[in-house]
């Protein structure tokens, strides 16, 4: 057994998927987490529950709904097909969207916690000193919530890397497009190629462990400062 027998394509694809998902999640998750941390709206509890749903739902539930929504006649896939020429199922973009939903709580919850820890006081101080709301967010709240951002990004990335069920259901196992490393491992186990499955699995195991060690270290060591 040597490394040349392992196709690195699925590994790269997984890294790309996780990267794209995290970027999208930070963009979408920041305003959402901010709103959740500061609103007194009575729908807040419902919104929090919605965000947390992927934590408790089996991936098959999400996969099933997405499969129906993503197809050429689905309510999401249809319009996308009309614009881009191809629906969302069995595409990389479809996987990014699916992963964004699936990893949402892993990014939104740490951000929300961080924003809640920062609280309103530093912001109110910044506003009285003449900072605009946006300015106050970027120069005061964001740096103070840095730990939250690091945790969110790393957990979102690692969780997407570990995604399996949803991808199995909407991916279609296309090399270079939707055959990510977790699917590759599954394939190799099924075809009794245990040697490669061991290498890939051990790699993922060690990587995930290091990621968590990193997150815990950051959370303990990084001081909160402006």
């Amino acid at each position: 057994m040597n490394f040349s027998e392992i196709d690195t394509g699925p590994i790269w694809l997984s890294l790309q998927l996780a990267g794209a998902t995290v970027i999208l999640l930070l963009i979408v998750g920041t305003p959402l987490a901010w709103w959740l941390a500061h609103t007194r709206n009575r729908w807040r509890t419902c919104a929090e529950a919605l965000v947390a749903l992927p934590l408790v739902l089996p991936p098959t539930v999400l996969g099933f709904y997405l499969l129906i929504a993503f197809g050429p006649n689905g309510w999401l896939g249809g319009p996308v097909k009309a614009v881009t020429g191809s629906a969302l199922s069995f595409t990389f973009s479809g996987l990014v969207l699916a992963s964004t939903l699936y990893s949402l709580p892993f990014v939104v919850q740490p951000l929300q916690n961080a924003f809640e820890t920062v609280g309103r006081a530093p912001l109110e101080a910044a506003w009285t000193l003449g900072a605009s709301r946006l300015d106050a967010f970027f120069t005061v709240a964001s740096p103070m919530a840095l730990r939250g951002y690091i945790t969110a990004a790393v957990l979102g990335f690692a969780h997407t890397l570990g995604e399996f069920g949803v991808v199995l259901m909407v991916g279609g196992n296309i090399p270079g497009e939707t055959k990510v490393v977790s699917i590759d491992i599954y394939d190799r186990v099924e075809t009794l190629d245990f040697a490669s499955a061991h290498w890939l699995s051990a790699g993922l195991l060690i990587f995930s462990f290091l990621v968590l060690v990193f997150v815990y270290t950051v959370n303990r060591r990084l001081p909160v400062r402006i």
């Binding site: 993503f70 197809g71 050429p72 629906a87 199922s89 069995f90 279609g172």
Partner: peptide, 10 residues
């Protein structure tokens, strides 16, 4: 089969 039944594949 279900890929075809859900019209994700023609």
């Amino acid at each position: 089969f279900h890929f075809v039944a859900t019209e994700n594949a023609e």
